Deep mutational scan, measured.
Amino acid sequence: MPSETPQAEVGPTGCPHRSGPHSAKGSLEKGSPEDKEAKEPLWIRPDAPSRCTWQLGRPASESPHHHTAPAKSPKILPDILKKIGDTPMVRINKIGKKFGLKCELLAKCEFFNAGGSVKDRISLRMIEDAERDGTLKPGDTIIEPTSGNTGIGLALAAAVRGYRCIIVMPEKMSSEKVDVLRALGAEIVRTPTNARFDSPESHVGVAWRLKNEIPNSHILDQYRNASNPLAHYDTTADEILQQCDGKLDMLVASVGTGGTITGIARKLKEKCPGCRIIGVDPEGSILAEPEELNQTEQTTYEVEGIGYDFIPTVLDRTVVDKWFKSNDEEAFTFARMLIAQEGLLCGGSAGSTVAVAVKAAQELQEGQRCVVILPDSVRNYMTKFLSDRWMLQKGFLKEEDLTEKKPWWWHLRVQELGLSAPLTVLPTITCGHTIEILREKGFDQAPVVDEAGVILGMVTLGNMLSSLLAGKVQPSDQVGKVIYKQFKQIRLTDTLGRLSHILEMDHFALVV
């Protein structure tokens, strides 16, 4: 994948999101292997301009796509893939009243899908469409860049269908997702969380590099694949309309690839034109409109599966009536509230959605109805927002919020430890010299600072030695090549209790 991002070429006709291997024109390309080798690009942008032909009021008969309808489940399912879809609609009884809503608040519980998330729908649909058009064949390999849930859905379907599955996901995604993927037989590649989507090191860039190296491999490409919004247009939206008897006044959905909100909203605009569509985008993402909503100094966020630093091709923002931004604290607070007060075992993005819903639905009156999409299960986040310690460490809970008995030293300040200034190293000294210094002084790690004293990161003896043994660096290389740029900081005025929580999850903390 090139470091400079080429513009994806656009073909003359058809839909841009065809499933299957992508040609340089962004659509299915038939021909000899030699032709494909000559024409197939190194990668295709996940934010390529959409060429979708959908228009409100256009006859369904003019759609270029294969459409399906929700099917009634048999008493005995032939395999677990038949437990994807037909998820329950559940009334939220307490939270709406707590925040003064007059309307009825309903939750579409997508964590009841077989793999635990709304992404099971698009995973199965992308595979079925690729099999139907002859792209996927027995023994082929599926590769997908994902925040985890699409990966789980694909790995689940691949396990049943017999495909090899490789999932490329950023490091910030939970260990629970990784464990589930491994249990399903998927191979996992992790990428830096802070890598831009168009960087060769991003999950998108690495996935395309693997595709170019592995024979008979395919990126189904949830960011561009029409099967993504079509899955929701054909099934999720129809289920909502049936469950609500066609009567709903507002739908609120958090947005990642945009397939969920695009597919549902398009069908609702056709069948229930008075329904307002509300999009939820986390602070630090750029999906919301108008652009002024996205202006923030924050560039990272903890909530998973929603928000991006690019506009995915499948996201149709014209069908969203209003956007709201959400933050991590309210997302996790509301997710825990949904679990504790409503018994809905949902993930953090569901918290984002409901946090926005109780604001947006203030305009609705008694007798009206708001539906929220709860995308995934708490299963993926047992060591994250479900953990009091994690919430404390991230600053989303305060010590006084917890009532468990603490040891005698818990409320003492870090400054009472009488710490001395640490050994520091410059980023320009060599790895070999740094190892000598650390061994001589008896230290395992040291902060790396520039000549102005600005902290650049941390270097550890173990990481340097393993990097040297693996051949990633040489003793003569500058130590700046092996620094940890993500590390926890703590102030002298913070409590030892807070430091204790940090050290339970990290090997060190830097006192500043």
Rank of each mutant, 00 (worst) to 15 (best):
P2Q: 11
S3I: 04
E4R: 05
P6W: 02
P6A: 08
E9P: 10
V10H: 02
P12W: 09
P12H: 15
C15E: 09
P16F: 02
H17N: 05
R18W: 14
S19Q: 12
S19I: 08
P21Q: 02
K25A: 02
K25P: 10
G26V: 14
G26L: 09
G26I: 02
S27K: 12
K30I: 02
E34L: 04
E34Y: 15
K36W: 04
E37P: 15
E37W: 14
W43V: 11
W43C: 11
W43K: 02
I44F: 12
P46L: 06
P46G: 02
T53C: 07
P59G: 02
S61N: 02
E62M: 11
H65C: 02
H65G: 02
T68Y: 06
T68A: 13
A69H: 08
K72A: 04
K75H: 05
P78M: 02
P78E: 02
D79P: 02
I80Y: 02
G85D: 15
G85V: 12
D86G: 15
P88L: 05
P88V: 02
M89L: 15
V90M: 05
R91I: 07
I92S: 09
I92A: 02
N93R: 04
N93S: 12
I95D: 02
K97E: 13
K98V: 10
G100F: 11
G100E: 11
L101H: 08
K102F: 05
E104R: 05
K108P: 05
C109G: 02
F111A: 06
N113D: 06
N113M: 02
S117C: 06
S117G: 08
S117D: 02
I122G: 02
R125E: 10
M126G: 07
A130M: 02
R132I: 06
R132F: 08
P138M: 07
G139V: 05
G139I: 05
D140C: 06
T141E: 02
E144C: 06
S147V: 02
S147D: 02
G148L: 04
A155N: 06
A158S: 12
Y163R: 06
C165L: 07
K172S: 07
V178N: 02
V180N: 02
V180M: 09
A183Q: 06
L184W: 02
L184K: 02
L184E: 06
A186M: 02
T191A: 02
P192V: 07
A195D: 02
R196V: 04
R196E: 05
R196N: 10
E201I: 02
S202R: 02
S202I: 02
H203L: 05
G205H: 06
R209H: 02
L210W: 06
N212G: 14
P215F: 12
L220P: 04
H232C: 02
Y233C: 02
Y233M: 02
Y233L: 04
Y233E: 04
D234G: 08
D234I: 05
T235S: 11
A237Y: 04
A237G: 11
Q242V: 09
C244W: 04
D245A: 02
G246A: 05
G246I: 14
D249C: 05
D249V: 05
L251T: 02
L251D: 02
A253F: 06
S254I: 02
S254K: 05
T257G: 02
T260Y: 02
I261D: 11
G263H: 06
R266S: 02
L268F: 10
L268H: 06
L268Y: 07
E270F: 10
C272T: 09
P273W: 11
P273M: 14
P273T: 05
G274W: 11
R276A: 13
